[in-house]
């Protein structure tokens, strides 16, 4: 658990630095560095429906706590994982970044839009939607407490199993 000495403040461009870095870790398959961006009790949530509020009792498109993230990254990095033969390549574009302010828990909330293209075995797949990052720490050691990923087609039909984080 991270201690919040003082409330985190970031400019838009500092917030962008973090989001761009996070995207770059995924696109270069540096999953361990990606994982280190999260606090020990952090979480990554893609709701199943746009109106969902509670990943503990509602079905999610994805809901990973840190142990689950560790296992998912471990799976992605094992060269014999069947679903990653061939591996997924991805390319993120993150935009429309807004620093919205601090919530009651002292978390800095940053909202942005993403467009992610993934490629695996001759097939391109597009994901689009919004990120909501809840950030803690200090400007030179920002950590993600929670990341919510709202896919525009979260409740649609999916003909690919999402393997690499968005």
């Amino acid at each position: 658990m991270s201690t919040i000495e003082q409330t985190l403040k970031l400019t838009r461009s500092e917030a962008e630095d973090l989001l761009f870095r996070q995207a770059e870790y995924l696109d270069s398959r540096d999953f361990n560095a990606w994982l280190d961006l999260f606090t020990d009790d952090g979480s990554y949530w893609i709701p199943h429906r746009p109106t969902d509020t509670d990943p503990e009792t509602q079905m999610s498109f994805m809901f990973d706590d840190v142990p689950m993230m560790m296992a998912r990254c471990e799976r992605l990095l094992d060269p014999r994982t069947m679903g990653q033969l061939p591996p997924t390549r991805s390319s993120h574009v993150v935009s429309n970044v807004q620093v919205l302010g601090t919530n009651g828990d002292g978390e800095l909330i940053v909202r942005s839009r993403f467009h992610v293209t993934q490629f695996r075995r001759d097939t391109l797949k597009f994901y689009a939607g919004a990120y909501t990052h809840h950030l803690v720490g200090s400007p030179d050691a920002v950590r993600i407490q929670r990341q919510r990923v709202d896919l525009i087609d979260c409740d649609g039909i999916h003909d690919t199993i999402l393997q690499v984080y968005l």
């Binding site: 009792t57 079905m59 994805m62 689950m68 799976r75 069947m82 679903g83 033969l85 999916h158 999402l162």
Partner: peptide, 22 residues
């Protein structure tokens, strides 16, 4: 049940992801 569904059968699950390949 929710956790099992997420891990085993969601559109981002880590079990059928490998079954789909076979």
């Amino acid at each position: 049940a929710v956790t099992g569904g997420n891990v085993g059968n969601s559109p981002s699950n880590v079990v059928a992801a490998d079954d789909f390949e076979s």
